[in-house]
């Protein structure tokens, strides 16, 4: 036992493993975002997620374990079970879905006020996804529509993305990696 523990703690020094939660309404493109981030031989055809999926990818020598949560209405209440032990949140928004922006705000509000997130400096990365769509809102407009500026106790960042092509994803993940590493160093 002791030997094994030592072995694994040795591992931890070398390579960082972080856990992030991927949330957002259904059909916003969460699984597609992750699919693009994964290594090439792991890719799948994306279908509506039932419940959750666990995906892994690497960025700058940091191993990410992403819990890809289903965005369907009946599973949204499942998200909160996973708030307590993640180090960052990726919130994916469909920028062309103006109608449900109000729903997004509601869900975001629930997330921010949950006891498991409220006191923590959890970095939140917003992807204003589907920026290529004809009637897509810009990331700035979405930020103001969701009133993101009121979030003061958590670092947040929004960037426009096109998950199908992979545009804008790296920029966001770069930011998230930095934030998480900073958090860990502070500990």
């Amino acid at each position: 036992m002791g030997l094994l523990d030592k072995l694994s703690s040795l591992f931890r020094l070398k390579k960082r493993e972080v856990k992030v939660l991927v949330v957002g309404l259904n059909n916003s493109g969460k699984s597609t975002v992750l699919n693009h981030l994964k290594s090439d031989d792991d890719k799948i055809t994306v279908e509506p997620t039932v419940g959750l999926n666990v995906e892994k990818f690497k960025h700058n020598n940091v191993g990410f374990t992403a819990l890809d949560m289903s965005g369907q209405v009946r599973y949204r209440e499942v998200w909160e079970h996973y708030y307590s032990d993640c180090e960052g949140i990726i919130f994916v928004i469909d920028s062309s879905d103006r109608l449900r922006l109000a729903v997004v705000q509601e869900e975001l509000e629930l997330l921010l006020q949950h006891p498991d997130t409220v006191g923590k400096r959890l970095p939140i990365l917003f992807f204003a996804n589907k920026m290529d769509a004809r009637d897509a809102l810009s990331s700035v407009k979405i930020a103001s529509a969701l009133n993101l500026h009121r979030i003061i106790n958590k670092p947040w960042h929004i960037c426009a993305s096109n998950a199908v092509k992979g545009e804008g994803l790296d920029e966001g993940i770069e930011w998230l990696t930095q934030q998480i590493c900073e958090n860990i160093r502070k500990e």
């Binding site: 039932v50 419940g51 959750l52 289903s70 599973y75 499942v78």
Partner: peptide, 12 residues
């Protein structure tokens, strides 16, 4: 309760 949340993981 809510055991179907592992559906996608198992399908995968």
């Amino acid at each position: 309760e809510d055991v179907i949340i592992v559906t996608s993981s198992l399908t995968k």
